[in-house]
Design a protein around this nucleic acid. Structure first.
Lengths: 212, 212
DNA sequence: CGTAGACCTGAATCGGGTCTCAGGTTTGGG
DNA sequence: CCCAAACCTGAGACCCGATTCAGGTCTACG
């Protein structure tokens, strides 16, 4: 992970500064990689296919990334940042913890429907880049734990270790999302399922009440 | 999935009947594959490495399996059957649904600690063999749903769609297991975490009570 | 024993992927 | 308009893995 350009201006290999043209090409490669990895998986995704999808020559790839693993890592972190942003934004609109929770889940499901790559790529990471996978989940928990701890202090949710609860909630989101979004035809989650899930979540966090 | 030998006597390719010697070699390959896939992942696991680990020649592999994907599929189904057996056995010893639930989780965690391959291999399946992945999860839910429906009818757990609840519970097991067993040094789950989890699970299923 | 049939072997073939490099193209500031 | 720097290209060197196959080894049974 020594040279991942996250949060800073992207560079080429060796830290070469990029012009706007270079920046555009780099982004094109990243977007093509998201499509190709999501469709074919890490193994079958080749540099050739990624460059073809991006509409650039093979050699161009190596002006921006060290290799296949490097672009993959960056993709995971990119998706991670995007899904967290979507969830945080949505949940900030709620007034009780339970409400915030449900809004966050809704955002997660919407993101998943729009970017099935999140699942497919994250699962690949188990082997391609275990450290990145861990980072992905840990970053997701971080915000979660903070919010839950606060809600516990306020007596809004059941007392307990917020970390165990946070991972439990993530697990629920992951499998329910997989079952009804990823396998459900790639569209939205049926309202019936979401309503049922809402009842389950409220119980799981031990919320005092859904409304303030 | 046309020719997976599950529940029937294993054969060689083309349905060739096997002598006890052949059966032993086949099993050796399967066990070697579990180790190699778990350690290296599908991509880096090569036939050469599997046959080396099994102590047989490369050509021998093709007397028993069509190729890499075929042995992988069989491995997933094998692990699936084993983990379900472990969970069913353990949970049958409980008297309330909540108790059965906790015993099942305990068995799942123990199995995971002993066979980290379960996680690693199942996650790979996302791409290698999506249909097999789906089968794995569906088989896990099946028994679950039946048990929950019964408990709901008996008023032992909260009313609702047992399927959504089953997937939620599996999600909790999956992520908590990943966090504290797979990443926790490969040993057991800390008692503190399991106790906390027990409280969460009881809330999630909406159990009337832990004891009868 | 002797042998048919099952089993085993690993070198060789074949296909496909990564990455390099010598040379062409585009861009932007002077 | 001009040129240096940045950018782009794709053929090919190189590597590695899946799969085959011609020939050797084991074993049960008559």
């Amino acid at each position: 992970m020594s040279e991942l350009s996250i949060g800073v201006q992207p560079t080429g290999v060796g830290g070469r500064a990029l012009s706007s043209r270079g920046l555009r090409t780099r982004r094109r490669l990243l977007e093509a990689a998201e499509r190709v990895f999501a469709e074919l998986g890490y193994h079958d995704a080749s540099i050739v296919k990624i460059t073809e999808a991006a509409g650039v020559g093979q050699g161009t790839f190596y002006l921006y990334f060290d290799g296949k693993k490097r672009i993959f890592d960056e993709l995971v972190l990119d998706l991670n940042a995007r899904v967290r942003r979507a969830m945080t934004e949505a949940s900030s609109k709620g007034s009780t913890r339970a409400e915030r929770e449900l809004l966050g889940f809704g955002a997660f499901f919407r993101f998943t429907a729009e970017h099935p790559a999140l699942y497919r790529i994250v699962r690949q990471a188990e082997f391609v880049s275990p450290a990145i996978l861990q980072l992905h989940y840990e970053r997701l928990t971080e915000g979660y734990v903070a919010g839950l701890r606060q809600a516990m202090a306020a007596g809004e949710v059941a007392q307990g270790d917020p970390e165990v609860l946070a991972w439990s909630l993530m697990g629920i989101g992951e499998l329910v999302g997989m079952r009804w979004i990823l396998w459900g035809g790639g569209t939205e989650m049926p309202e019936r399922v979401f309503d049922e899930l809402a009842r389950i979540l409220v119980r799981t966090i031990g919320a005092r009440d859904l409304d303030p």
